[in-house]
Design a protein around this nucleic acid. Structure first.
Lengths: 203, 203
DNA sequence: TTGATTTATTATCATTTGTTAACCCCGTAT
DNA sequence: ATACGGGGTTAACAAATGATAATAAATCAA
């Protein structure tokens, strides 16, 4: 239970000034979920209508391709949200698999229960808006990267802003997330290193 | 005024079953906007907090690059939404330019006025959720295309689903939207044509 | 430690794309 | 008719990427 409060308060801190003071009703729609490394959170075909706020760890959303290997749609880490947008937005079975790359602690919010609460407590609507806007911002940031940046620039942007995350994830997933093959990412890293660009600090 | 009702009713039809029967309050937050071909809707640096539902025409969001040419973030057309997500989500000046590629008719919704209305009429919250979810779905569809599809496959997906739109837009904008140069798109078209793939019907 | 597995790098070659420039097509204005 | 400009195609070359395979490095388990 202390864990639950820790995570929820971390989330509420981000929402301070937006939500009403009494957040007790939120506890009825949430639960803390812990995943082991490699554990599957959502399977292909699942209809999970949950919003998960990641307190610790890294999640990976990917599609299983016919060729056997898979393509990573995105990674999500501490402070970010992860959800099956197929199920939430379209009410359709998830086309993707969501799996923990590390031991993960999440605050899981039941979207349907949240809607029930919102019927009686519309003052919590900013909560849903926060979730949707945050997911929208993250999706748009990814899209902008593909439109405006080269693979090398996308890698640099990720390294500069999230070296702490890149450092914890096998390169092959980073490559897939950037839309290139692991071999190509290795060459990009070699080019950067030759130019004296070395990975350092960051957050 | 008849135009206004036409567009709004088209939008309300998509929202049937979600919004309450009396939609009169919505008229206070909307206006019909007509743009000429080539007219700029939002400039770089603007802080326009509007949601625009396109009834007719095609809009283009792009960034002006230092090199002089520009890169298209996305196109939006009939039935879709367009908004400066910088201003709406982050309350920051728009980094992009939004311009009409054709004569455009839109239903423009003032996001701040909408929030005022929602304070007194929380029963209209589904309207905001519809907007956010729709924009999220569109952003994710674009992102999935870049992660899972090759430029050629992205072009085919666009042509097969939206030939009516592709047909109306200069190829250079299509190319930019797909993340390739106009020269490369021309080569892709040539390859496809050599394989007997010809652009035909579609919607 | 050892051995087995996974991951990352490097090499090779084919394919694709970017870049630049030339050329063509086609409307439009003069 | 002529000139002009926007848009699309094609060519030529450089650069980057994909695919495959071999090798090296790191990780994990026994």
């Amino acid at each position: 239970m202390s864990f639950s409060i820790n995570i929820l308060q971390g989330l509420l801190q981000e929402l301070s000034g937006v939500l009403p003071a009494d957040t007790a009703p939120l506890f009825t729609i949430t639960r803390v979920l812990k995943l082991e490394e490699g554990e599957v959170y959502i399977r292909e075909g699942d209809l999970s209508r949950k919003l998960a706020f990641i307190e610790k760890g890294i999640m990976r959303a990917y599609a299983e391709k016919a060729s056997g290997d898979d393509a990573t749609l995105f990674l999500r880490w501490e402070g970010q949200l992860i959800a099956s947008h197929d199920a939430i937005i379209q009410r359709q079975p998830s086309r993707f698999v969501y799996r923990a790359l590390e031991p993960v602690t999440m605050l899981e919010i039941d979207y349907d229960k949240m809607e029930e609460v919102l019927k009686d407590h519309p003052e919590f609507e900013p909560l849903r808006n926060y979730f949707l806007m945050k997911m929208l911002a993250e999706a748009l940031e990814g899209l902008e990267g593909f439109v405006f940046l080269s693979p090398e620039e996308r890698y640099l942007r990720l390294v500069d802003s999230k070296w702490g995350v890149v450092n914890r994830v096998p390169d092959k997933y980073i490559a897939s997330m950037l839309g290139v093959t692991p071999v190509s990412l290795s060459r990009i890293r070699k080019r950067l290193h030759a130019r004296g660009r070395k990975p350092e600090e960051g957050n």
